[in-house]
């Protein structure tokens, strides 16, 4: 009973906010609707018993990725007239992407219905091993059967991170940044000097 209500609540909100993401005119509203869609998708995952994935979805996508996204969109100065002018030109490309996505979805659902994939039981509940919590089950699989794939994913992320840092890091000359270790290492006897200038002569530092 309560599961059914919760399911329909989350499902309807996910679809409605996903539709609102592409329909709303204001890009900031779009991003906020996208966040709502993520959040409700996390709710659906909790219902299927994948609470660990749900929390990761919220922490990673909602808490980090979407914040940066929102950040960028807020700073952008978007010209709506120009955006709408490009609609006819981009329409064929958009249709192509939509058809590819539809085909992938049909294929994916077909493969799942055919039972070729060992993902879970068809009634939608994930088959977690008995007696193990979600976190333990995922950890157990990830660090044994899929260890090399996991490490490869980690390496790819590391390379991406190094790449991003290399791309954005630039050595600027002439800046006067604060070096806290240097400041802390400074002692009075090297920072101050006592001079007794003669009358009529200045002090050179």
């Amino acid at each position: 009973m309560i599961q059914t209500i919760a399911f329909y609540l989350f499902a309807v909100l996910t679809i409605a906010s996903a539709a609102a993401t592409i329909l709303s005119r204001n890009p900031v509203h779009s991003v906020l609707f996208l966040i709502l869609a993520f959040f409700n998708a996390a709710g659906l995952m909790v219902l299927t018993g994948a609470e660990f994935i749900a929390m990761l979805l919220v922490i990673v996508y909602v808490g980090a990725v979407a914040v940066l996204f929102l950040f960028v969109v807020m700073m952008l100065d978007i010209d709506f007239a120009e955006l709408r002018a490009g609609f006819v030109k981009n329409f064929p490309l958009g249709m192509l992407v939509a058809v590819v996505l539809l085909a992938e979805m049909v294929l994916g659902i077909g493969a799942y219905k055919a039972g070729a994939l060992d993902l879970g039981t068809p009634d939608g509940t994930a088959a977690t091993p008995a007696g193990a919590s979600n976190v333990e089950a995922i950890g157990g699989l990830m660090y044994s059967r899929y260890l090399f794939l996991f490490e490869a994913a980690g390496l790819i992320l590391l390379v991406a991170m190094v790449g991003a840092i290399v791309l954005t890091h630039r050595q600027r000359s002439g800046t006067r940044g604060q070096k806290i270790s240097k400041q802390n290492a400074r002692r009075p006897d090297e920072a101050t000097v006592n001079v007794k200038p003669e009358v009529g002569k200045g002090v050179s530092l």
Partner: peptide
């Protein structure tokens, strides 16, 4: 089971 992750989320 995932109380701490919930707080982080």
């Amino acid at each position: 089971n995932i109380g701490l992750l919930y707080i982080l989320a």
